[in-house]
């Protein structure tokens, strides 16, 4: 039982990161039906943006003080947002009316490009780079079930962000415009919504969340590398589809489900097939519930 609870909490930690990245996928997909395959790379770029800020912008004497962490988060978010907005503007927007597969290929091109750009031009990024440990990795817990402080921190931050995001989408004017654009872009435009702007904002929000997730990944594992975006991106996309793509709550639920399934599967079935579980669960869910856990509409637009 202790073991089960332990794995359950581990799963929640993994799931928190997946969920944060999945939100970016789901937001963008909800609005322009684009599978933004480069989103995993935005996550990776964010982590490197945070690292660069720590290495080159902070004075050395103060860099390791824990109150600098918000600044690192901010730098990561800024990097991700800038890159994502540039990508949207120069790679995706010209293809808005192109055949459906064209932007997908572009996204893959962007993904390869970003990965290689970081690998080649970030100093010493060809192998993993250590990430500053702002939050202690000491274990806390009770009755044998323990989690590092950093993991608890990650979960708390992720949940706060998700609450903030759903409040934003539900209540703010921009959020309303986002929902309108997602339902029917043409009508939204007729109603005076600047859909281009809304699309950019959506990309930016997704990227900001991914940037935060990037720093959290660094904090948790103590290192980042140029290749972390790929698998994280695929898993997060899986999470988004699992929950019902285009659905914000679904992405969160999908992320946590995926994390928990992975942790439990590793413990009880086999650790070599860790990455397989995610996909098996996905296939099973889709076969029996094709629109995802929370998806109400089947994606018919194709």
């Amino acid at each position: 039982m202790v073991q089960f609870l332990q794995q359950l909490s581990n799963g929640v930690v993994i799931g928190a990161t997946y969920a944060l990245i999945a939100l970016g996928y789901t937001l963008v997909y909800g609005i322009i039906q684009l599978i933004n395959f480069a989103h995993g790379e935005i996550f990776m770029v964010g982590a490197f943006g945070g690292l660069a800020f720590y290495l080159y912008a902070l004075p050395e004497s103060l860099a390791d003080e824990s109150y600098m962490l918000p600044l690192v988060f901010l730098a990561a978010m800024l990097t991700s947002v800038v890159i994502a907005v540039l990508v949207e503007r120069f790679a995706y927007r010209p293809l808005r009316r192109a055949p459906r597969l064209a932007p997908l290929i572009t996204a893959i091109g962007v993904s390869i490009f970003l990965q290689e750009a970081v690998r080649l031009y970030f100093p010493d990024a060809k192998s993993a780079r250590p990430f500053p440990q702002y939050v202690s990795t000491r274990n806390v817990g009770f009755k044998g079930v323990g989690l590092p402080i950093v993991a608890i921190f990650v979960i708390v931050v992720a949940i706060l962000l998700m609450i903030a995001l759903s409040a934003f989408i539900k209540t703010s004017k921009t959020g309303k415009a986002m929902r309108a654009t997602s339902q029917d872009p043409d009508t939204a435009r007729l109603m005076g919504v600047n859909t281009d702007k809304i699309i950019v904002i959506t990309f930016a929000i997704g990227a900001a969340l991914a940037g935060i997730a990037g720093v959290m990944q660094g904090l948790q594992f103590g290192q980042i590398s140029f290749s972390i975006g790929f698998l994280a991106g695929i898993k997060a996309f899986t999470a988004a589809v699992l929950g019902g793509i285009g659905n914000v709550t679904g992405a969160v639920l999908g992320g946590f489900t995926l994390g928990i399934v992975e942790a439990l599967g590793t413990q009880y079935i086999s650790s070599t097939y860790k990455d397989v579980f995610a996909f098996v669960v996905l296939i099973l869910v889709l076969v029996f519930r094709p629109s995802g856990l929370l998806g109400e509409r089947v994606a018919t637009r194709s």
Binding site: I234, V241, P290, A299, S302
Partner: peptide, 13 residues
């Protein structure tokens, strides 16, 4: 039975 992007992700999986 799945459509569009769901099929894409299942095949990816």
């Amino acid at each position: 039975r799945l459509r569009g992007d769901y099929l894409a992700i299942v095949t990816l999986g």
